[in-house]
Design a binder for these strands. Structure first.
Lengths: 107, 107
DNA sequence: TTGACACATGACACTATTATCATATGATGA
DNA sequence: TCATCATATGATAATAGTGTCATGTGTCAA
């Protein structure tokens, strides 16, 4: 637990807010979220993701680029194929948790 | 564990995907998220939220309306004031969890 | 009842996001 | 080298989301 000055506090909370906003923004698109959900079960290449999500190759590539730019993905190239996986288990956990808790709400 | 037909499965996953997308979309706006984060520490009225978030009254009201429409808020009217709180602990948990795990990422 | 306060709502201009089409790149095998 | 496969990228039209101004509604106190 670090003691922060007011300015540092404002900075901290502001960047946490911004960070969280960007993170949620990333997941707030159906196509992108579908890809992330698919990747929870492990690595997949673009064609596989297209097939599983029903999205076009172009769209999948675009969304993968967005996820990549946010450092949410790990990329592995193998010949003609490019394999993607979630960068770390935190993403999987966060999303899984949300999914679980949302299910429990009486919405 | 229920056994679903293909169509039911598609329905289920599709609505879960849609639900999660809408949920994330709701949190993907800085102002709205700031309000939600504030409300984690309990009930607050509009003026209080304006003060704490630094947002205009109009904007806060608009965002509260959005959150209300998504059944994320509980409303209590008391005289001239309107008090808002998060509808259930799931929201708090989901957001807190994301905040915590995002902090642990080396982004 | 009137004025002031607390909040809500509608309309709007501005900006951002979305998915698509067309095309580029890069690797592989013939 | 060339054709082809797998994927990436740029441009663009359509749509959605953002915050603000103006104004409406309901409550209370005088």
């Amino acid at each position: 637990m670090t003691l922060l000055s007011y300015d540092e506090f404002i900075m901290e909370t502001s960047t946490a807010l911004d960070g969280l906003t960007s993170f949620y923004k990333l997941l707030s698109n159906r196509s992108r979220l579908a890809i992330v959900l698919e990747l929870r079960s492990g690595e997949a290449n673009v064609a596989e993701l297209c097939h599983r999500t029903g999205l076009s190759q172009t769209l999948v590539s675009h969304q993968l680029a967005a996820l990549r730019n946010a450092d949410i993905l790990r990329v592995r190239r193998a010949g003609k194929h490019t394999y993607y996986q979630l960068a770390d288990e935190h993403i999987t956990t966060i999303v899984g948790y949300a999914l679980e808790h949302l299910g429990e709400r009486e919405v």
